[in-house]
Simulated assay, not measured.
Amino acid sequence: MLATLPFLGYILEGLTITIGATLVGFAGAMLIGATLATLISGSNAFLNTAATGYVTVFRALPELLFVFIVYYGLDIAMRAFAARIGLSSLEISPFVAVAIALAVQFGAYCAEIFGDARRAIPVGLIEAGEAIGLSDSRVRTRIVLPLMFINATPALGNIFLVVLKVSALASVIGLEEVTRRAKVVAGATKEPFGAFAVAAACFLVVTAIATALQHYLERRANFGRSAVKS
């Protein structure tokens, strides 16, 4: 364990990459999920079917498999594009690949969350907005979207924690995140327990902070629900 201590800074630098990939992937997942939920609840049958198919497909794929598909698929596409425009080569960044993989795949889960959150909005609130003369776009932005995010807060917090843990899969494509750096340190010191214990502690600390923030947002969301009911 003592042999791992000099490498603490090296491992902690990997934690910043883990957090960065998680935040980018989660933000992308929320954007994709909100868009899909809107399409699924819309009146266009084609877009509704396409969005539903997206959710079905990407919820079924294993996360590790999809990380490989995105990384190697984009690598092939970028090399082909580089050859077409006369460049020597273009390479995909592992960070970009894992962020895209997380966003695309967990966007399907977020779509389900946002869909349930939207259905939980009392119809009377929407009708009240229409009754006072709000346009469809204003009803959507001032009533539907705020209440949808309030209702989705608890589930989104759980999804964030899942994305954080799944981000460790980025090590398989060479991203220098906390898990991969812990493996490097374990190989150098011959003390795998110490290195991976530090990595585990990093995840525990980030999870504790994220959970505390989630509880804070849930309390704010409950306050918002009380204000709406009153």
Rank of each mutant, 00 (worst) to 15 (best):
3 A>H: 08
199 A>Y: 02
49 T>R: 15
164 L>D: 04
182 A>V: 09
211 T>R: 11
216 Y>S: 15
116 D>F: 08
38 T>V: 13
17 I>V: 07
90 L>Y: 12
120 A>C: 06
173 I>D: 10
154 P>Q: 11
61 L>N: 07
17 I>S: 06
147 L>P: 06
83 A>Y: 10
33 G>L: 08
204 L>T: 07
4 T>Y: 03
98 V>T: 12
187 G>T: 00
28 G>L: 00
203 F>R: 07
178 V>L: 09
58 F>E: 02
57 V>Y: 09
27 A>T: 13
23 L>R: 10
98 V>A: 01
122 P>Y: 05
41 S>P: 10
28 G>A: 00
227 A>I: 14
204 L>R: 01
110 C>Y: 04
144 V>N: 02
214 Q>K: 03
180 R>M: 14
15 L>P: 12
108 A>E: 06
217 L>P: 12
181 R>D: 05
159 I>M: 05
104 V>S: 06
44 N>P: 02
149 F>R: 13
140 R>Q: 01
114 F>Y: 11
203 F>P: 05
109 Y>R: 00
138 R>C: 09
40 I>N: 11
190 K>C: 03
109 Y>H: 09
43 S>C: 03
213 L>F: 11
225 R>P: 01
61 L>K: 05
227 A>E: 15
74 L>P: 10
179 T>W: 10
38 T>W: 11
70 V>P: 01
135 S>M: 01
111 A>I: 06
24 V>M: 06
88 S>M: 07
149 F>D: 00
25 G>R: 00
46 F>I: 14
142 R>P: 01
98 V>D: 06
223 F>Q: 14
59 R>Y: 07
192 P>Q: 07
92 I>F: 07
196 F>H: 02
223 F>N: 15
227 A>R: 15
95 F>N: 02
214 Q>I: 11
90 L>V: 12
196 F>N: 01
55 V>K: 11
65 L>E: 12
93 S>I: 08
24 V>T: 03
182 A>R: 00
93 S>D: 14
27 A>Q: 09
21 A>G: 13
73 G>F: 00
59 R>M: 00
105 Q>M: 15
154 P>N: 08
18 T>D: 14
73 G>Y: 03
89 S>Q: 15
174 G>Q: 14
189 T>Y: 06
56 T>A: 15
174 G>T: 12
147 L>R: 13
69 I>Q: 03
129 G>L: 08
76 I>A: 13
173 I>A: 10
116 D>A: 15
201 A>E: 01
74 L>F: 09
182 A>C: 05
172 V>A: 10
15 L>C: 14
177 E>M: 09
198 V>P: 12
6 P>D: 06
35 T>P: 07
17 I>Q: 08
90 L>C: 03
163 V>R: 00
175 L>T: 10
38 T>L: 14
201 A>I: 12
122 P>V: 07
81 F>G: 13
150 I>H: 01
189 T>S: 04
87 L>D: 03
8 L>K: 05
123 V>A: 12
221 A>K: 08
153 T>C: 04
34 A>V: 11
